[in-house]
Computed example of a mutant assay.
Amino acid sequence: MNLLFNTILADGYTSNSQIARLLTENWVLNNSYCPSCGERPLNEFENNRPVADFYCNKCNEEFELKSKSGKLSNTITDGAYFTMIERINSENNPNFFFLTYTKQWTVNDFLIYKYRNIAI
C-alpha cells in the first residue's frame, strides 16, 4: 500500500484545508476498498454532498472520510454538526474512514468505523 499522497494534484492550491481534502480523498480512491464486501475501487460522490464522500457500487454502502494532520483524538471536527447528527440518525447512515497524515503529506493511520443500524 502506498502511504504517500500524490502532491502534484495540489499544484495551484493555497488553502491547506483544500489541499488536505484533495489529497486524502484521492488517496482513499486509489488505496482503499469496501470493507463490507471487498469491492474495489470505491466511487466518489459529487463534492459538497452532506456526510457522504464515497460509495460502493456492489453493496451500496456509503462512507464519510474524516482526516486530520497529527493524531486522532476523542473529538472529530465537522463543520455542519446538525447535518452530521441528522445523517447519523437516519436510516441510511454512513460508515466512516478516519485518516491521519503527517506534515510531509504521508498517511499516518487509516481506520474504518463500520456503522451498524440495529433496530430495537
Rank of each mutant, 00 (worst) to 15 (best):
V28F: 12
S36G: 09
C34V: 07
K66N: 10
L22E: 05
L22F: 08
E64K: 03
A52E: 12
N60I: 06
L42F: 10
N48I: 09
S32L: 12
L65A: 00
P35E: 03
R21Y: 09
G70C: 10
L65Q: 01
N60L: 14
N60D: 10
N57H: 03
V28C: 12
K71I: 11
E25Q: 14
E64W: 01
R21W: 07
C34I: 04
C59K: 03
L72H: 10
N30P: 01
L65M: 05
S32V: 05
C37E: 04
F63V: 08
G38N: 10
F45Q: 11
S67T: 09
I19T: 04
N43K: 15
N48A: 13
N30S: 15
F54W: 06
P50K: 06
T24W: 01
W27P: 00
P50S: 10
R40H: 11
A52Q: 12
C59T: 02
D53E: 06
T24M: 01
P35R: 06
S73C: 03
E61H: 11
Y55V: 14
S69D: 05
S67D: 03
L72D: 04
N30L: 13
E62N: 13
C37S: 09
P50E: 12
P41G: 04
R21Q: 15
N47L: 15
S36H: 15
S36L: 15
E62K: 13
K68G: 11
L65E: 01
L42M: 13
P41S: 04
N47G: 05
T24Q: 01
K71G: 04
C37P: 09
S73T: 15
R49L: 15
L65K: 02
N31K: 00
P50R: 01
K71R: 12
N26P: 01
E39Y: 14
S36Y: 13
K71Q: 13
N57C: 07
V28H: 05
F63G: 01
K66A: 08
